[in-house]
Amino acid sequence: MSDSPISQPLVPVFDGHNDTLLKLEMREQDGRARSFIEESKEDHIDLPRARKGGFAGGLFAMFVPSVRSQSEIRALPNSDPRHFGRLSQPEALDYTLRMMSRAFRLEQQAPGAVRICRSSRDIKDAMTAGQLAMVLHIEGAEAIDPDFAALDVLHAAGLRSIGPVWSRRNIFSDGVPMAFPSSPDTGDGLTDLGRDLVRRCNRMGLLIDLSHITEKGFWDVARLSDRPLIASHSNAHAICPSARNLTDRQLDAIAESKGLVGINFHVAFLREDGRHNADTPLETIVRHADHLISRLGEDHVGLGSDFDGCVVPRAIGDVGGLPALLDAFRQAGYGDDLIARIAWRNWLGVIERSGL
Results as ranks from 00 to 15, higher is better:
Leu10His: 09
Phe14Glu: 01
Ser35Leu: 04
Phe36Arg: 00
Asp43Arg: 09
Ile45Gly: 00
Ile45Thr: 01
Asp46Asn: 11
Ala50Phe: 05
Gly53Ser: 08
Leu59Phe: 15
Ala61Phe: 07
Met62Tyr: 05
Phe63His: 14
Val67Ile: 15
Ser71Pro: 02
Arg74Asp: 15
Pro77Asp: 04
Leu87Lys: 14
Leu93Ile: 06
Asp94Phe: 12
Asp94Ser: 13
Gly112Pro: 06
Arg118Met: 10
Ile123Gly: 00
Gly140Cys: 07
Ala143Phe: 07
Asp145Glu: 06
Leu154Gln: 03
Ile162Gly: 01
Pro164Met: 05
Trp166Thr: 07
Val176Pro: 00
Phe180Pro: 01
Ser183Thr: 15
Asp188Gly: 15
Gly189Trp: 06
Leu193Met: 14
Gly194Glu: 02
Asp196Pro: 05
Asp196Trp: 09
Leu197Thr: 01
Leu197Asn: 05
Met204Asn: 06
Gly205Gln: 13
Leu206Pro: 02
Leu206Gln: 05
Lys216Ile: 11
Ile230Cys: 06
His237Ser: 11
Pro241Asn: 10
Arg249Lys: 11
Ser257Cys: 09
Arg271Leu: 05
Asp273Pro: 06
Ile285Pro: 00
His291Tyr: 14
Ile293Lys: 08
Leu296Asn: 01
Gly304Cys: 02
Val312His: 01
Val319Phe: 01
Ala328Gln: 11
Gln331Cys: 12
Tyr334Asp: 08
Asp336Arg: 14
Asn346Cys: 10
Leu348Ser: 06
Val350Phe: 10
Arg353Asn: 10
